[in-house]
Design a binder for these strands. Structure first.
Lengths: 227, 227
DNA sequence: ACCTGAACACCGTTCAAGT
DNA sequence: ACCTGAACACCGTTCAAGT
């Protein structure tokens, strides 16, 4: 309906890049649940089947969207130690995920890693190796980091919103949670008062893990399994 | 089609419990993608709309399924220290998730915590507090654990399957990943040779975090933020 | 040869008609 | 009052008919 181009009837031909960028923009604007092949085609002013010229099916579309956003992560920058290099890259990945809130769920839904994800993970593994971690330790470290390598917060549910103070009935049923919520409200963890400081919590966990890895490296850790 | 009950034409009346148990069994058997209201109704030998007598909509069905599986987690058992109590409960939660592979994704898809999840998190928070962690530290520890409290592996993708050795073209493009894969194949991390030992990786990360928490507790950590 | 509209086999849910 | 079949507004994708 809304025509955004003044160009004549010959509209610019579709290609995979245009499809992927439109899909990312649509997911950013309306959420991943509203992203359907039909809705995307409509956005591109094209018949639904035209998309299948550039994308085999919806799975391949989602794969392409993942590679698009993973490509937005900043390249590796040098730092004083391996920890700050890894830390900076992961915080960049987190900023990307905050720009594209649908991306984490889509990445998790892929059965296998896409090429851009593999390239990113490969360079992260390289950072650990360059930092002096053995191949053995790097392997376990990569698993321990898991999706956090890509900036996933790994929280059970979103606590950033202004959820308000828990009612007295909730406090009675879940006393320990009520106590933690009160702690969050007291200190300066939130700018306005509701919810938690997601960025602080993310960096708290990240630094705890990185410090743990460095400690294992220093003591020459090797997997001490029998058999 | 397949009639499994020899009882007469009066079939046992539907109730919410029967609906939830059937939904869990269907998801276990056929996967979460194959779980539809229509398919579930067919399994219960009932017209689709009959389900809406016991469940407001599909979201409420999924909430109920989550509470059902979270209820399968073993209760808290005493241990020599707080770490082993927490550790044992989390490993029990992980066993539950391995029995219901769809559960992790469904739990993550819920917008808010269900009552059983709240109760579980509350008792976990209590374990940390009983172990001597301050309310402040417990708060950050709960965030740092995140979905791992419920046994989530937080891996980016499933590496347990027999993926076979990476081809030479993959090794050239992703040399560090190839090196890690070779490491996993050499040592005894996998029973048959393909993939990684998920249980070892899970416990490696879990113990690293628990040790880090205990270390912070010992040094009397408090959130040292300004403002 | 290329494109595309209609059709297929689904989905969650509404609602009016039937008993 | 209760139940339920048909219908609605969607999906991803196939495929045959049209140009």
């Amino acid at each position: 309906m809304t025509r955004q181009e003044a160009t004549p009837t010959h509209r610019t031909p579709l290609n995979k890049d245009r499809v992927l960028r439109a899909a990312v923009a649509l997911a950013d604007a309306t959420g991943i649940d509203a992203l359907s092949m039909r809705r995307l085609a409509q956005e591109l002013d094209v018949v639904p089947m035209a998309l299948y010229k550039h994308v085999a099916n919806k799975e391949e579309l989602l794969d392409g969207m993942v590679d698009t956003v993973v490509g937005e992560i900043d390249p590796l920058t040098a730092g004083p130690d391996w920890q700050s290099a890894v830390r900076g890259r992961i915080l960049s990945a987190r900023r990307v995920l905050l720009r594209h809130p649908w991306a984490a769920r889509v990445i998790e839904s892929r059965t296998g890693p896409t090429p851009a994800v593999l390239a990113y993970l490969d360079s992260m593994a390289g950072s650990f190796r360059d930092g002096g971690l053995s191949a053995d330790l790097t392997h376990h470290v990569m698993h321990a980091m898991g999706s956090r390598l890509l900036g996933f917060s790994q929280e059970l549910f979103d606590t950033s919103g202004p959820s308000g103070p828990p009612g007295p009935e909730l406090a009675a049923r879940y006393p320990h949670i009520a106590e933690l919520a009160a702690t969050a409200a007291h200190d300066g963890s939130s700018p306005v008062g509701g919810g938690c400081d997601d960025q602080f919590e993310f960096e708290f966990a990240l630094d705890l893990l990185l410090d743990g890895f460095e400690s294992l490296r220093c003591q020459g850790w090797t997997s001490a399994r029998k058999a």
